[in-house]
Design a protein around this nucleic acid. Structure first.
Lengths: 205, 205
DNA sequence: GTCTATAATTTGATAGAC
DNA sequence: GTCTATCAAATTATAGAC
């Protein structure tokens, strides 16, 4: 990491530092001084590259949100069979979050802070994600009798909840279950297979 | 609400106002002026009753955290049979959160901000919650062959995730599924029955 | 206990030298 | 492009009158 810092442009150093500070402290908690220190420069340079705190934050946030959301939609609206689709979603999502564990908390936290602004910025008004295709697919399987009767909306919520929640609630979980970093990570890795398995058991006939 | 404000003591008015502001904006985003305005008093009085912002926040936070956590432990360590225990947990938790929808986001958000400080304050070092009893109970059922083979830790995570996550991710969910307030609330109410049902289907033999 | 006025501090932002 | 020094605004906290 430190090796590469020399090669990084100042702008890249700032963005990396801002990412780190914003994702741990949030927009309100983050201090420009913290970011400058983390980047090994001074505050004035932050304003030289990015006009103000808001602009810097927005750059970081949109960048991160793009990692978090678009994958959901591309998988859910693909042409895969239901079970494979669920499996792929869980796998790819957990993998992504294992690499960026701060991501879900950061994104959800900032969306909560100002839902309209950010949801709009991420998708725009016409570019809404369409889980409807996935919901219809589930509905079709139910009517075909391939899987048990279940509300597609609830099944969708079950899947997303089991996948994402442990990452958001990490401090609660590690404390309650007395887990160290390694144990927690191992459990998350296990969930890649455990969640699809659990769902299949619940809805297969 | 406004009727009672006359009867409320100033301290109660402050706490109610602080609760409202802190739970929506968080510790960093909250302004003492906002709280004073919300309480219908001036800033100086806030400091008269609570030395500083940190003390006021801590009072509110610990009060709220006590609503959120202890119930988990009391239910999980009770003597109920497994299925009833799961059902009771989901019911009571969703009911609690339907009344205080901001609760899970607020508590988890502030714990993420400073895990050590708050986790310690909530339980202390010796007073750790003991989901172990619940985990053992699940393990026993598995070994008896009453339910399918499943890791107790994962089952625990499944239950908690499905129950709490939708409350934390409300803005994401309502936007993605195009739900209005009422529809969202109805779905949450449905989950009281849906989650236990789903779990039973997954683990019953 | 409650208020107004003000101090003290924090922090985002800019000016200007190099 | 980068730095030091400084300003301006926002925000917490206190002094002191009533």
């Amino acid at each position: 990491m430190d090796k590469k810092k020399k090669q990084q442009s100042t702008e890249e150093k700032i963005l990396a530092a801002a990412r780190k500070v914003f994702t741990t402290k949030g927009m309100d908690g983050a201090r420009m001084q913290d970011i400058a220190d983390e980047a090994g420069i001074n505050k004035a340079l932050l304003h030289y590259y990015f006009r103000d705190k808001g602009k810097l934050f927005e750059t970081v946030f949109l960048e991160e949100a793009q990692k978090f959301f678009p994958k959901i939609n591309s998988i859910f609206s693909s042409e895969l069979p239901l079970f494979e689709k669920i499996e792929k979603f869980v796998h790819e999502y957990i993998d992504e979050m294992l690499e960026n564990p701060y991501l879900p908390w950061f994104v959800m936290n900032e969306i909560n802070r100002d839902p309209e602004q950010f949801m709009y910025r991420i998708w725009g008004k016409e570019n809404l994600p369409q889980p409807s295709k996935f919901l219809e697919q589930m509905d079709k399987e139910v009517r075909k009798g391939t899987i048990k009767k279940i509300s597609p909306v609830h099944l969708f919520l079950h899947i997303v909840s089991m996948t994402i929640f442990p990452f958001v609630a990490k401090p609660m979980i590690t404390r309650n279950l007395q887990l160290d970093e390694l144990q927690f990570r191992q459990i998350l890795e296990q969930r890649r297979k455990e969640i699809p398995r659990f769902i299949f058991d619940a809805i297969k006939k």
